[in-house]
Design a binder for these strands. Structure first.
Lengths: 339, 339
DNA sequence: TTTAAAATCGAAAACGTTTTCGATTTACCG
DNA sequence: CGGTAAATCGAAAACGTTTTCGATTTTAAA
């Protein structure tokens, strides 16, 4: 049973394809009676327009692409949820691709999306991307792009971000204010902007409060996993007996660290205070519960789509597009892992 | 700058569209020289075939749809990851829709996917669906469908599942073997097959081991949230002072329950043992760590796609399709929340 | 009854591919 | 050089829509 087409409806009704098409879309130049007939038949035959044909004709796919580094991730899945919820409201479908933090994959996937002629793409960069030609190429071909969370400052497009630097500053300052004297930092990889900014915020807070910045206190992680949290917590204990606070780039790692410290009998927060980043659900559930920075994933997804949608509209109407950079608020969530 | 088409390449090279198309796809009836010329130009112009046109012609979208109840969910996001990883290997893109446990939405989304002429759809049912006409309609129109995790036994299609009943039996039996005398069950809503099966497994284990089944010991939850875990744990304490074990439908609720019991000074597992279901990452991290049933999400996603892919292939070659039902293994993960 | 205006309809082109099949060119052999 | 086989090419139809614009029919007015 093949999908029913306009042609079939037209033939069984003895009218032209044109009229059927117009009847279905309530054109003014088709009679009420014909409209009723057509709509009824379409209904009973369960007619659904072939999106390919429509898109080929109208050049609109009503589909956007989304590239994220990792799907199984509390923050990113919240973002996804925000995006598809908002997209659905506007009649858009979203194709999700996972870059696995690989620049090469990211490039390939962008090509794929272009081939599908998506109306726009939303992207959060892989840790591995230091070159942005693929992004600029896409935009050069009229495909709107908006970046969120892990962005590249140098690329000229709309962005939705948080102020990582400020948030990290706040977190570190809280550690300082609560009496920590020697504060370590588990940072993310070198390339991503947010891991740079969080590091910078940490450093700034230190300097502003009369600490001397000690590079041996910052550990550069790679996978940002629970296991790395375990490993570097142990490492830190070995390297620096005097550390009494850690600001950690992301909650998952922080939870790994807490796990390791618990195991070794280190008292949190009495011996060492810990602050994470992101406010994963898990953070409110482990013991001790984790002080962290709340990062609004759902809102970020929603906002990113809105920006993209606005740009799609503008382009469609041949209006000038202005790139926006919206900064979402973060919040320090104080729990048990700090004094 | 409009996307470049075959026509453009053909014109600048002074050859026909046909030849360009064939050159790009390495047809044997175009000369090496022409192929080289075409490919070079395509490369420099950054030509990407218009998927709409291709699909309209070939009737293959190389896209599948995925409908799941909830994105922000450890199990489902693992499934998603498995699906898109496997799909990418075979050159398929996946459109993800979230039904939010709503039957109405699910129906609408299925229509949307059909309109997009996806090559197939993967679905895990919403809790609210008790009617399956929308699924049968889709299949009647030649769109392969495979269900996973939350399935409907009555629908005739390929499925990938776990043996919920057996797993629940194992869990409950473990509680019994470890000495529990009065075992409660927090079950899911009434409709979904897996919540029924888990309940049945629980009941069977009880009966098989000389317990009398007491309906007042099973609580029917709705949202399956952390908060519900809190609430029903409190409720249980009020209703039944003698309960010493709970088998809980899903880890998130179990974690909520543990949270509440911890707060009230109930000792786990000494006073009450708890077993969850799914093996969320979180379960290995809370205190006490949660004994649970491991449910292989990534593998399930991968398998579901494979089944779908097989069916797509078969249909394409006009071969008879046979529906398969594959059952994935589960495993009891013993941790601290049980004796 | 004629005529102009309004209402209703449909032919055809276009979107960018793929593929069949016939046409043309080239190479080769005697 | 003639003829056949092989190599190379392109015209055209098709996929299912949308939309323009001209054609036809109906209605209402004169």
């Amino acid at each position: 049973m093949k999908p029913v087409t306009l042609k079939e409806i037209a033939e069984t009704l003895g009218i032209s394809i044109t009229t059927v098409s117009k009847a279905l879309k309530d054109y003014p130049d088709v009679s009420k009676k014909t409209k009723r007939l057509v709509k009824e038949l379409a209904q009973t035959l369960n007619y659904k327009p072939n999106a390919f044909a429509v898109n080929l004709r109208t050049k609109e796919s009503k589909t956007i692409g989304l590239i994220i580094p990792e799907v199984v991730h509390h923050f990113f899945s919240s973002v996804i949820k925000g995006i598809i919820a908002q997209a659905e409201k506007k009649g858009y479908l979203v194709i999700i691709l996972q870059s696995n933090e690989s620049y090469e994959l990211e490039k390939k996937q962008l090509d794929l999306l272009f081939s599908k002629r998506v109306d726009g793409v939303l992207i959060s960069l892989a840790n591995g991307t230091g070159d942005f030609k693929h992004l600029n190429d896409l935009m050069a071909q009229e495909t709107p792009l908006v970046m969120f969370d892990k962005i590249a400052k140098i690329v000229n497009c709309s962005k939705v971000i948080i102020n990582d630097r400020k948030a990290a500053y706040t977190a570190t300052k809280y550690l300082i204010d609560s009496g920590c004297k020697r504060i370590a930092h588990f940072r993310g990889p070198l390339l991503p902007q947010n891991s740079i900014d969080r590091f910078l915020g940490y450093k700034q807070a230190l300097v502003d409060h009369g600490f001397v910045y000690d590079p041996s206190l910052v550990y550069i992680l790679d996978a940002m996993s629970f296991d790395e949290g375990n490993y570097y917590a142990a490492q830190l204990l070995k390297d620096h007996k005097d550390v009494d606070g850690i600001f950690i780039n992301t909650d998952l790692v922080a939870i790994g660290a807490i796990n390791e410290l618990n195991k070794r009998g280190v008292k949190i927060p009495d011996d060492i205070s810990i602050i994470g980043f992101s406010n994963w659900f898990m953070s409110s559930v482990i013991s001790p519960t984790l002080t962290t920075i709340d990062q609004p994933g759902y809102l970020m997804g929603k906002t990113a789509f809105k920006l993209l949608y606005k740009e799609i509209k503008k382009r469609k109407n041949n209006q000038a597009v202005v790139y926006e950079e919206v900064e979402l608020p973060t919040e320090l969530i104080i729990r048990e892992s700090t004094k």
